[in-house]
Design a protein around this nucleic acid. Structure first.
Ligand SMILES: NC(=O)c1ccc[n+]([C@@H]2O[C@H](COP(=O)([O-])OP(=O)(O)OC[C@H]3O[C@@H](n4cnc5c(N)ncnc54)[C@H](O)[C@@H]3O)[C@@H](O)[C@H]2O)c1
Ligand SMILES: NC(=O)c1ccc[n+]([C@@H]2O[C@H](COP(=O)([O-])OP(=O)(O)OC[C@H]3O[C@@H](n4cnc5c(N)ncnc54)[C@H](O)[C@@H]3O)[C@@H](O)[C@H]2O)c1
Lengths: 217, 217
DNA sequence: CTTACTATGTGAAACATTTAACGACTTCTC
DNA sequence: GAGAAGTCGTTAAATGTTTCACATAGTAAG
């Protein structure tokens, strides 16, 4: 569990799944080795940043050679716990929820939406993307071991649902509603606020014109 | 256009739409004033950070009083160009694309999806969320003034479509595909990689257990 | 074996962002 | 109208992240 030598910076941790995916792609393509420069072009992260990120885990590469794809892949598979599947619950089978269920993060992935809940009786009992939709009132009985939830309910239901989730043992929530939910300190919430993302993009477009030569994240 | 005194930090710029939304809420609720502390609790951003963010735009508040909601709202409306609507095109009317069309970022918002495109002839001609779906081959004729595109096509079509978009004059892309696209320097791309977000959340859950007292973004 | 090349891993610098702390001014209360 | 309480705006410190640049060690080739 505490395999890490010391704590990895958060910025690095957020890039790990990205690295993993691209290393996986290289592996499928039969590539045997890769340099930080090549990887940099693929994932659009500065090559020095990649080397620094990798170096937090020790010396994964060889000087003058680069990184062995096979080794890198197996290292990240271990580090990202790709061998054990994490079960996820989805709350709110509306527009967004349905899209996620149909997708279900199946490829190259250790996460799977195991069960979905909705308040609308017409949806309950149906199956979307191979996942059964249960009624939200049965919810406490059906999530036993699940620690991670995706929240795609209307925003006015978000805080209340979050509290029920936490009460039932959930400790990580991916919140797609615009509501900023309040949770106890042991619970982790990541907000993905799509309207904000779009507006921020427009703001940048208008106020930070990219002159040639400037790049970004 | 260059109304800003000096360049605002990117981290601040990304929070502006969030502030705007909450100030808007307060205004609808009839609140007349608000302190950085109250706002902090609502948006989950440290109050010092909020004061610092606002201060980039000059002195918006009054000492000992806080901020006048009406004034703040009208200031941000101006700053975020909420009076002119930005037209957006959506490419790829699949699971995700359909969800976005049905939602269409209508509330409190200056962005609107004006037109959608798909390669599948069965979808063309239909209307989703009040937006007409056009065939991707008619695309160059129909986006005239549009500068912003949301990309929700399969990942193997992403790079090619991005190039066509840019060729047609698009300069900002919100990319939901896992592909990291390559674009010329004058084009801005924001990646929203949902699978990565979910995996990162799981990684944090397992490797960065939150002890009581720790909070985060 | 020797020489030329390559690409890592990292110290140090640069840059960006957040947080603490507090003086100054406003409002509120009596 | 005086004193207490409240809250901004900002200076300075702390923290976090990215990038530069290069010594070092391994590869590749003759
Ligand atoms: N669709 C988008 O593109 C989009 C974009 C940005 C933000 N969002 C946000 O994501 C959330 C979901 O959006 P959507 O478009 O899927 O909405 P939606 O209305 O289509 O879906 C919400 C679903 O939640 C169900 N629901 C309501 N209360 C519930 C409860 N207490 N427990 C369980 N289920 C409940 C409803 O029956 C419905 O099926 C909203 O908060 C929305 O603001 C959506
Ligand atoms: N659905 C999700 O929850 C989810 C999650 C993470 C990532 N993604 C990514 O988002 C993207 C879209 O996902 P989705 O589930 O909506 O896929 P989807 O297959 O349901 O939709 C893709 C749509 O794009 C259309 N299309 C294909 N080629 C096109 C082209 N050249 N021009 C225009 N349209 C074209 C297809 O006809 C289809 O309607 C994918 O890259 C996927 O990896 C989706």
């Amino acid at each position: 569990m505490d395999t890490e030598p010391t704590k990895i910076p958060q910025a690095t941790a957020k890039r790990l799944p990205l690295y993993y995916r691209f290393i996986n792609n290289l592996h499928s393509q039969g590539k045997l080795r890769v340099s930080s420069k090549e990887l940099s072009e693929a994932v659009k992260v500065d090559s020095a940043t990649i080397r620094r990120d990798f170096s937090y885990f020790g010396a994964l590469g060889k000087k003058g050679y680069g990184y062995n794809v096979e080794y890198l892949l197996s290292f990240f598979r271990k580090t990202l716990d790709q061998d054990e599947t994490t079960e996820v619950a989805l709350i709110g089978v509306g527009n967004l929820g349905t899209a996620f269920l149909n997708y279900n993060f199946t490829k190259n992935n250790n996460t799977r939406i195991q069960v979905a809940f909705d308040a609308d009786k017409r949806r309950v009992g149906t199956e979307v993307g191979g996942v059964k939709v249960e009624h939200i009132d049965d919810f406490e009985n059906k999530i036993e071991n699940i620690k991670v939830a995706i929240l795609t309910v209307p925003s006015n239901a978000a805080q209340g649902m979050a509290e029920r989730l936490i009460e039932a043992g959930v400790t990580a929530i991916l919140n797609f509603t615009p509501a900023r939910i309040t949770v106890p300190p042991h619970v982790r919430v990541h907000h993905i606020d799509l309207a904000v993302e779009l507006q921020a993009l427009v703001y940048f477009l208008k106020h930070y014109p990219l002159e040639d030569g400037e790049e970004e994240e």
